[in-house]
Design a protein around this nucleic acid. Structure first.
Length: 266
DNA sequence: ATGGTCGGTTGCCGA
């Protein structure tokens, strides 16, 4: 069984339900993991996605901020969520898939503007969130675990994951301390960064372009904030990564674009 | 070197 799994920070699913529907119609992934849905579950636009065949929906929303969801054409074998950092923030949801696969969908805190936890609580929260992710995946570490981890991790770890390594070293999302914390999550379960397995450095890869640019495409000052990782047991079954850059040019777009991967889940 | 734009718990805060 071949599954296509997509991840997309939608920046308000109610405002962009039509864009999501367009994406589901044209790309027809088996699963779509959304972040920043920004809506309580009772106001989630479930019906238009159900009508397109996405009858299975794992929602973890809250009013105004954060929020993650998984839309699926294949039934789930269980749904779970974790409230990280002792907060009620809706930043994680996980579902079971055929073949004993666990799919985790994350929205890591952005971290504010100042990369110093002594003066910026939000930056401390981001680092603590990543530490708790690392601890959680270390605690369940097993050689044969089949785990897919996707989402907006809000860190661009590699030199060519940003438009200017030098200029972004002190900018939240690319600072060495964040990169270290993200590496600890990755090492906790030997996760393979599937995008970089397929598109190695020094090729530039971005999944996000700021709204603030006069012309996002011409300036092309992007960052790779959205990730798809798999455990070693799935490494040879995962591939065909696609980054839908064109979605950044759609009408009233999200500032993030979808990332897709195919997985042999037999 | 600065400020730029979005979205929603809107005339501010978070990203």
């Amino acid at each position: 069984m071949r599954l296509t799994i997509a991840t997309w920070n939608i920046n308000s699913v109610r405002l962009r339900a039509d864009l999501v529907a367009r994406f589901l119609e044209t790309e027809a992934p088996d699963l779509l993991c959304l972040q920043e849905t920004k809506t309580p579950d009772e106001l989630f636009p479930a019906e238009p996605f159900e009508a397109l065949g996405y009858r299975h929906q794992a929602l973890t929303g809250q009013k105004g901020y954060h929020g993650v969801a998984i839309l699926s054409r294949v039934p789930f074998e269980g749904v779970d969520r974790r409230a990280y950092c002792g907060k009620g923030d809706a930043r994680h949801v996980t579902v079971g898939l055929p073949g004993g696969i666990e799919l985790h969908n994350f929205y890591v805190p952005a971290g504010g503007d100042e990369p110093d936890r002594t003066i910026n609580e939000k930056f401390g929260h981001k680092l603590d969130f990543l530490t708790e992710m690392a601890d959680t995946f270390a605690a369940c570490r097993r050689k044969d675990n089949r785990i897919v981890l996707v989402g907006d991790l809000n860190v661009a770890p590699l030199e060519h994951d940003v438009w200017s390594h030098k200029q972004l070293l002190t900018v939240v999302s690319h600072t060495p301390i964040e990169v270290e914390h993200l590496a600890r999550v990755q090492d906790a379960h030997d996760f393979v960064d599937v995008t970089r397995q397929e598109i190695p450095e020094p090729e530039k890869v971005y999944t996000w372009w700021s709204y603030r640019a006069r012309d996002w495409e011409a300036s092309d000052r992007g960052r790779r904030l959205d990730h798809i990782w798999v455990t070693p047991a799935l490494r040879n079954r995962a591939g065909n990564i696609r980054i839908l850059k064109a979605a950044r040019g759609w009408e009233r777009p999200s500032d993030h674009v979808p990332v897709l991967m195919e997985l042999e889940a037999g």
